[in-house]
Simulated scan of single mutants.
Amino acid sequence: MAEHTEIINAAGELRRACEGGRAPQVAAAVDRVEALLHPHTRDEETGLFAVMRRQEEFTDHIDSLCSEHTTLDAQLEAIRRAGAGVDPALVDTFLHDLRHHIDREDNGLFPAAAIALDGPDWAEVDEATPAPAPRAPAPPAGARGQAPDRG
């Protein structure tokens, strides 16, 4: 779910880049969203989704989430192609669809997985999903934008 927050934040950067109307910034913002979104969706599909798909009651839901991944990719590609001349409605649709998709996972599939899967299932998910890349350390106290520690 933390990855979802990063993706949403990058999507906000994408909106601002599109509003700025400069093609290089739009392309860079699409690259950033894709760099977060593609590994995330690949890991979901090869890990959690693959394991959950074995339970018939989740198959249709998993299939619809995978379809949404494809739609989001196509929308990002359309934004990239449009560049500086992107229709704001396209960006709005992408952001709406992204948030809706994340809501379906965070508040639907993930809680269901917590109930439906057991230890061996989670071990299989972990095995199929590479460990997340280490995050950059927090800036030290006194770094730009932070008040120095005076204590």
Rank of each mutant, 00 (worst) to 15 (best):
T93M: 10
G151L: 10
I102G: 08
E57L: 15
A27G: 01
L95T: 15
T71L: 05
A138F: 04
D103S: 14
R150A: 13
A133N: 03
A143P: 02
A28V: 02
R54S: 00
H69L: 01
R80L: 06
L76Y: 03
A29H: 01
P88S: 07
A11I: 08
E44Q: 09
R54A: 08
D73P: 06
I102R: 10
A78W: 00
P137M: 01
V51C: 01
F58K: 10
D92H: 08
E77Q: 13
Q55V: 10
H96Y: 13
R135T: 09
A136N: 06
S64N: 12
R53D: 07
P120E: 08
D97F: 03
I102L: 10
T129M: 03
A2C: 01
D63P: 03
R53H: 09
V51W: 02
R80A: 08
P111T: 07
L117Y: 01
G83D: 01
C18N: 09
V91W: 00
A50Q: 08
P140H: 05
E127Y: 12
A11R: 11
A116D: 01
N107D: 13
T46I: 12
V51E: 00
G85Q: 01
E3S: 12
I62T: 05
L90W: 08
L98T: 07
T41H: 05
E19I: 11
A133Q: 07
L117W: 05
H38S: 10
Q146H: 13
E34N: 09
G12L: 05
H38I: 11
A147R: 14
S67A: 13
P120N: 03
L95I: 14
E6A: 15
H101E: 09
A23T: 14
T5N: 15
P139E: 00
A113H: 04
